[in-house]
Simulated scan of single mutants.
Amino acid sequence: MPPRATHTSAKAKTAQSSNNHPDLLELARHLSAAEFGRLHEIETYVQENIRQQSVEPWNQEALPVEMLHRLGDLGLGELFTDGSSQLFQGLAHAALARADVSLSSIIGIHNELIVGTINTLGSSEQRERWLPGLKRLTTLGAFCLTEPDHGSDIAGGLATSATLEGGHWRIRGSKRWIGLGTVADVAVVWARDTADHQIKGFLVPTDTPGYQAQKITHKTGLRIMQNAEVELDLSVPESALMPKATSFAATSEGLRGSRAWVGWQAVGAQQALFDIARSYAVTREQFGKPLASFQLIQVALATMAGNLAVSTAFMGELTRLQEEGRLTMLRASLAKATLTRIARESAASARDVLGGNGILSTHEVAKIAGDIDAIFTYEGSHGINMLIAGRDLTGVSAFA
């Protein structure tokens, strides 16, 4: 693989070498000029139009659909298929997470598990029907895998059934924690074929009779993401089956990329925490001088900066491996588990810097901390991802 081009224009040097930019390792310098400019446009837009504006929807557990439409205008609904580099995609996900982790979850799942799944596993007719609207974010999708009684053990325990009867698939079962389940236009439903017992993927329009979704409320994280409990007792044409989604191996492929993407969310969330804590420390005065002049505050900020740098370096190198086709489940699981753990530690440090104001969502740290707790658990819990990594490292499975 040839070395990645380095963008060293005056604009790039000015933007990325500033100590006020949270890309402490200046990864964006490796982008082409066009991708650098596009990233700058995305960063500017989300900081000006999403970061503060997302606080109240987060408080209200509401989905600001108009924000999604504008993100579609920026091309964020088709990152998976637009030919952009893995590094650009990662930095774009981080930029959005820096503004709001909930919306970054929607965009990440949309790209990796909805657009990516249909584009990779669907038929030409399915791609033609669904992808144009999905890429513009005028159409939304829901990835229906997790069940009320099966999360970490979904591969062996998935209970939703699919039976082929007279040219139609009869799908019955329950799903839980389904992002956008109440507002999506199409559901990617994973069900076990009663004939061969393989897990298969189906595209189900959500206006199909027998699709019912109820919003899960009272979450303390990812409150903008509209998670749902979904009940399925419906019939779809035989053509609803995605031709290449005929075993759980197809699902695992998507989950591997999705776990790596969560690492970029952890980077973006830490960028936000660092932004907020540093700004607060230099503007807030106690005992007649700025908080930033106190040793404990500087130690906290330096610790957060170190955590962010380590996370950024991890994802930068992981991106190179992705570009070489060498992303393994070990590497993806370690990225997801390790960087979300580090992000939690940084959230605790930021909370300390802000003192009492750290528990107010309007000061953002509490909002981000809640969201980090959520991403610490989803796309495979921390423990499960560590056991996946342990199995690969030792050749011995420690799963029950």
Rank of each mutant, 00 (worst) to 15 (best):
T146M: 11
G179W: 03
V186E: 06
E147P: 02
Q198W: 04
A213Y: 10
G210Y: 04
T160V: 13
P209V: 08
P209K: 07
T220F: 03
F143P: 07
V186M: 03
T182N: 12
E165P: 01
D207R: 14
V183Y: 07
L145T: 12
T217M: 10
G167E: 06
A187V: 06
Q214W: 11
G210T: 02
G181Q: 07
G201R: 03
A184H: 08
W169P: 04
G181W: 09
Y211K: 07
A195V: 08
G210H: 05
T206C: 15
I154Y: 12
P205F: 09
Y211F: 15
K175L: 02
I171L: 15
H150Y: 10
T146I: 13
C144S: 13
K219D: 01
A187K: 06
L137P: 00
R176N: 12
T163Q: 15
A162S: 04
L158C: 01
G181L: 08
L137G: 00
D196N: 09
W177K: 10
D196P: 02
L158T: 07
K200Q: 14
K175F: 04
H150I: 00
F143L: 08
A159F: 05
G156I: 00
G151M: 11
A213G: 10
S161G: 00
A162Y: 03
A213F: 11
G181R: 06
G221K: 03
L145G: 05
H168G: 03
F143Q: 07
V186L: 04
I216R: 10
T206V: 09
A191I: 01
T138A: 05
A191R: 02
I154R: 05
T138P: 02
Q212F: 15
Y211G: 08
S161N: 03
A159W: 00
G156S: 03
C144N: 15
L180N: 14
W190G: 03
P148I: 01
G167K: 03
H218E: 13
H218I: 00
L145F: 12
R172A: 14
A195S: 12
H168T: 14
G181M: 07
S152G: 11
F202W: 07
R172Y: 06
K215W: 15
S161D: 07
S152A: 10
E165F: 05
S152T: 12
I154D: 04
G221S: 05
T160F: 00
T217Y: 08
L137W: 00
K219Y: 02
G179Q: 13
T163V: 11
G141D: 07
L137R: 00
I171H: 02
A162M: 00
I216A: 05
T220K: 09
I171Y: 05
I178C: 14
F202K: 04
G141P: 07
G167R: 04
G151Q: 09
L164N: 06
